[in-house]
Design a binder for these strands. Structure first.
Lengths: 112, 112
DNA sequence: TAAACATATAAGAACTTACTTATATAATAA
DNA sequence: TTATTATATAAGTAAGTTCTTATATGTTTA
């Protein structure tokens, strides 16, 4: 039965069902981002941010790339569930203002 | 900030992030359905089913209609998040086989 | 090399979730 | 009216989630 696939979909949706992770994905849809930027944006402890990113990485939704001392996270557009995530994010308010705010604070690290 | 709306989106996605509720919505996208049919389909206790439906109803995603002794649940297509739910379900395997199975078992109640 | 910075991991606490069993409510049928 | 059927609610429990603080790892800079 196709219930295995349904279950996989549900797992991805559960990951999206947290406002921090949903916003993270919204941000990554616009641009890659490093951990310390997420910390500034969400005003959340660094371990809390790391743990959210770990979940997204374990699901294969994001990938990491070390750039010097920073670890830059980006969307994994090859993931089987990426099309669903993209479609979900079309219904979610744009997170662009958060990048703008980051830039205004002089806290921007990763540039495109 | 638009974070209130983001949070609302996340709440809906959290509801979809459970395989039983996700399948329920997939079924309701095809046809309305009563509680006892859900019980047969998911082979789950009646209170468990009722509690899942309650959450979907509290979020405004489904509505109920009494038909005699049965309470028939259907999608609330007027809900602000319905378009997102519809788009999500496009990425989820069809639940139609569950209705077919129900019919084969002679357990179908609600007809369209 | 030592200090500072960026990130990850571990352990634990508070809260939430998804069941369970028992019981209440409402409609129908005998 | 009584029994049966369909559904909801309540209370309790086990497991899961999301933080916290403390610490470890890896990189850069002085």
């Amino acid at each position: 039965m196709g219930d295995r696939s349904l279950e996989d979909n549900a797992k991805i949706l559960k990951l999206l069902g947290d406002k921090t992770r949903l916003a993270m994905l919204g941000l990554l849809m616009i641009n890659e981002c490093c951990v310390c930027e997420f910390v500034d944006i969400f005003k959340m402890s660094q371990p809390a941010i790391s743990q959210h990113l770990r979940k997204l990485k374990d699901a294969g939704l994001v990938k990491e790339n070390r750039r010097g001392q920073w670890i830059i996270y980006s969307l994994n557009r090859e993931n089987a569930f990426f099309p669903m995530v993209r479609d979900v994010l079309k219904h979610v308010p744009s997170q662009e203002e958060k990048f703008i705010w980051l830039e205004q604070q002089g806290l921007r690290i990763s540039c495109d």
